[in-house]
Amino acid sequence: MSKIKFIAIAILLSSLTAVFGQNKATDSGGQVVTVQPKIMVIPYTKEGEDLRTILEQDENKRIAIAKIKEGFDSRGFTTVDFVAKLKAAKDNNIFTSDNQTDIKTQIVEMSGADVYVQAEVIVEKGQSGNSVKIILTAYEASTGNSLSNKIGESGRFYTDDFNKLASKAVESCIDDFLNVMQAKFTDIVNNGKSIIVDISFSPESEYRMSTEVGDDGLPLSDAIEIWMEENAFKNNYHIQGTTDVKMIFDDVRIPLKDQSTGNNYNPNKFGLEMFKFFKKLGITIGRDVKGSTIYITIK
């Protein structure tokens, strides 16, 4: 009888492994590779300038962007190709507006880039020679946090070879620029990645931020903040503002790795924890995750 029980348990366990275990084809034996940020280098555009044609018209910008990407490559880091994304966007007709800022935002969103580097190329012509200046700025796409800013200068030369000057301008600052970025990445590794949590209500919701919830009868906004205090990585969070119908955390730190399993952690997993919290309070929510922003809609 006990033998039959043992066989039954063994069959049950093996079937559970087959259902929930990792596929052998993708099983790395527990090795975890940290998910790297996607970085895209884009040209700076003034108001009214056409982002779609600006690169085709201005070879100095193309050279500057290629040189910046070369800097990332030399550190063994692959960037998302802006021109390829632009072409894909054109092919897929993703542009729905003529507004240039919107197009830039749309490309950044479509590319899924976590970080984008903006390059502004300034050509200066003078009697004492010509020069090129370059302004490099790196931002976190979701939060707008600045990661690195540098100005590079080619120096003045009696030459009309602006391509070479653009290249020299990038060379003068790219290493320093990348070093500062890396210092910010180290801060992210140590203190967590910044995400935004936007909590609002559906029109038919019976709840408001002042509604008393849970066993303690705390106002909902306070219950949320206490949860955030306990769950933000290293207790690091910032509230942008709270009204009766909205609560925005504009900077919540989450770890890059799950602190218990060592697996990669992302905003979606943090969103799941929030879902569990609201479920415990008996509140139904809608949850959307877009890049590094979690939208919670209380129903």
């Binding site: 940290t34 998910v35 940020p37 990332f72 880091f77 990445f185």
Partner: peptide, 9 residues
């Protein structure tokens, strides 16, 4: 040799 991290996270 793992003295510093590679570029990125």
């Amino acid at each position: 040799f793992g003295v510093i991290r590679k570029f990125g996270y």
